[in-house]
């Protein structure tokens, strides 16, 4: 594998000769990557997401305002050369604020969704695959967390954790957001466990955890990805809701959620206070959704576009970072 990775991509050979000189079997990761690169929506959304990150983390360096600076000479001012996206009602620069909020929301949204999905898939798959007491104990915890009033607990806990920053907030949101997904994964695993290819792996002596990683999770990945993309939007929304009630991100820190909440009553009179933040949130959630669709199609070999039709267009295309098969 490593030897082929260092070679330049072989010139596209027509038909069978390619087979004869073909490198050793390409791993599943590489095949998925190639399929992902073939999807137009997927690549576009990945690029958009990358741009959003660039904007959020590099953008603030282009203006001399920071999100806490107050310009008393410009209250509720429309976009201008000095304040690119205008100012809010106390004279803060909207550009700096939105970008800072975008940083927070990007990180909170993606990290929460990722953590919750990983937690759900590990717990759900283990409960479903091992069955018996493992299943009973894990299901008990899932049910316990489901009946906990999440909002109340976050409300009680978060003031005490205010000093430890937003990462704790991510953990809190994730801990209360994975249970339903885990239950679905568990039931899907229970039916997958009876399939012959899983039984074949068991009889080959493959380690149970390896079976979960190599057979169970890829076969529930379509669901996990769709669920995770929805969870991204959900995390941003619940962060907004909690911040509104004063539990999440607190001033002077901002997030897209707090900015939208602040700007919503001025949406029609001073649109720049509202629409820059709202627009970026929409772009962000949409990009994540399209990325999820692309990932799902890339991981599901039976889906959509036949590879043969797409192949000629990708001649000479060098896939990005090569990942050894896991």
């Amino acid at each position: 594998m490593t030897t082929t990775a260092t070679q330049p991509a072989p010139p596209p050979a027509a038909g069978p000769p390619a087979a004869a000189a073909a490198p050793a079997a390409r791993g599943r990761g590489r095949v998925a990557l190639r399929r992902f690169a073939a999807g137009r929506n997927a690549v576009t959304s990945a690029a958009v997401l990358l741009l959003l990150f660039l904007l959020a983390f590099v953008g603030p360096y282009f203006t001399h305002w920071s999100h806490t600076d107050i310009d008393y000479s410009a209250l509720r001012e429309a976009p201008s050369a000095d304040h690119w996206w205008g100012t809010n009602r106390i004279g803060q620069d909207v550009y700096a604020q939105v970008l800072h909020g975008l940083q927070k929301s990007l990180l909170i949204g993606l990290l929460t969704a990722l953590t919750a999905t990983v937690l759900a898939s590990v717990v759900g798959a283990c409960a479903g695959y091992f069955g018996g007491w493992t299943d009973r104990i894990m299901t008990f915890f899932i049910d316990l967390l489901l009946v906990f009033p999440a909002f109340l607990i976050i409300a009680i806990v978060s003031p005490r954790l205010r000093d430890s920053g937003w990462i704790v907030f991510v953990a809190l949101l994730a801990v209360f957001g994975w249970m339903i997904t885990a239950r679905v994964v568990r039931s899907m695993t229970r039916s997958l466990r009876e399939r012959e290819f899983v039984r074949a792996a068991q009889l080959m002596g493959v380690h149970p955890l390896r079976i979960i990683v190599r057979h169970i999770l890829p076969n529930v990945s379509s669901f996990l990805i769709v669920d995770a993309t929805i969870a991204v939007g959900g995390a941003v929304m619940s962060e907004t809701g909690l911040s509104y009630f004063g539990f999440g991100v607190q001033p002077p820190d901002v997030s897209l959620g707090t900015l939208i909440a602040d700007g919503s009553d001025a949406a029609l009179t001073y649109p720049w206070m509202f629409f820059f933040a709202a627009g970026l949130l929409v772009v962000f959630v949409l990009a994540v959704n399209f990325l999820g669709d692309g990932l799902r199609d890339a991981l599901d070999p039976t889906s959509g576009h036949p590879r043969t039709r797409r192949r000629p267009r990708r001649n000479g295309h060098q896939p990005g970072p090569r990942r050894p098969p896991t």
Partner: peptide, 22 residues
Amino acid sequence: DPMASLDPRMPAGEIIAEPLRA
């Protein structure tokens, strides 16, 4: 049933490699 006993999400090469890895 060869359809049921091969993981639909794995390329043939990895399917064959599985017992070797195990």
